[in-house]
Amino acid sequence: MAQVSLNNIRKIYPNGVEAVQQTSFDIADGEFLVLVGPSGCGKSTLLRMIAGLEDITEGELRIGDRVVNHVDPADRDIAMVFQNYALYPHMTVRRNIGYGLKNRKTPADVIAAKVREAAEMLNLTDYLDRKPSQLSGGQRQRVAMGRAVVRDPSLFLFDEPLSNLDAKLRHQMRIEIKALQRRLGVTSVYVTHDQVEAMTMADKIIVLNAGRIEQIGTPSEIYHNPASTFVASFMGAPPMNLLDARFEAGQVRINGGTPLLPASGSGPVTVGIRPEDAELTPEGPLGFDIQIVEELGGHRLLHGQLADQPFTLHVGKEVEARPGAARVNLRPEALRLFDKTTGQAL
């Protein structure tokens, strides 16, 4: 178990590309931190720096109370699960799981006991003598987990571990990984580009964009109070609606029309609202032209135009809707304002 802290960490590749801009954050003991962002945002680089697979250009990295900038990956007391599992193809599951222990000169009987224990935890007992090529994707994923768990590390690192699985298995493994992490209480850093994984698994999310931290927060904070239009549109499926509006006469108005909420300021502004925070009601002040109704069983998504801007509305399954004109009400308390030019929350 360990606390991890990054202090002004920066990564510049030899070719001059700044993959990670100056970054500082702490990960509390036992916390499940998810790094999320689009591809190329530097999240994997950040993880690989924590793992020691990538040099840190500037700054200080601590795991526990040790500065580990120049400590070998093997001596950082970490375990990592890779995207394509990186199992040793010629070794049986048993040897794969035990390999890290063997290299640390653990006595054979201790290795055997620990491997057995890890295999039981991950339902791999029947597969210990198979080779990775004889396992399904989900089983390979578990072996990769087993290899991490067996070492009893103070920090787990996950590099998009579920992206090679099909949707159903991904859902199941998501829950398994989360449950395992809860049970073992090991501090974890998890990298993903899938915002659903981030929302469902994290204690704390860090949203990255172009090598920079956009926001750090709990899933709920990130979802309800995005720090920028980038976070607003990246997190949540469907994303937050972003509408062009203006400050006029102490009110935020769309297209110079209906006042949305009182606010002081001037000039253009971006208004954000989650699809489920708007309601379909005949008395609604705004006209909504529904173009497509997406039937999702438990709920419906209505896609259309609101004041000539694309808009998505989330309604419960009990609300009947068909394409055509309708009226909506945007709950004032759910509206978020962003600076039109910088995209930062106001």
Binding site: A51, G52, L53, D72, P73, A74, I78, A79, M80, F82, Q83, N84, A86, L87, Y88, Y99, G100, N103, R104, R147
Partner: peptide, 14 residues
């Protein structure tokens, strides 16, 4: 040979 294999081995202390 996939690069992750080298990295996994490094973390495994090989």
């Amino acid at each position: 040979v996939p690069e992750e294999l080298v990295e996994a081995a490094r973390i495994d202390g090989a």
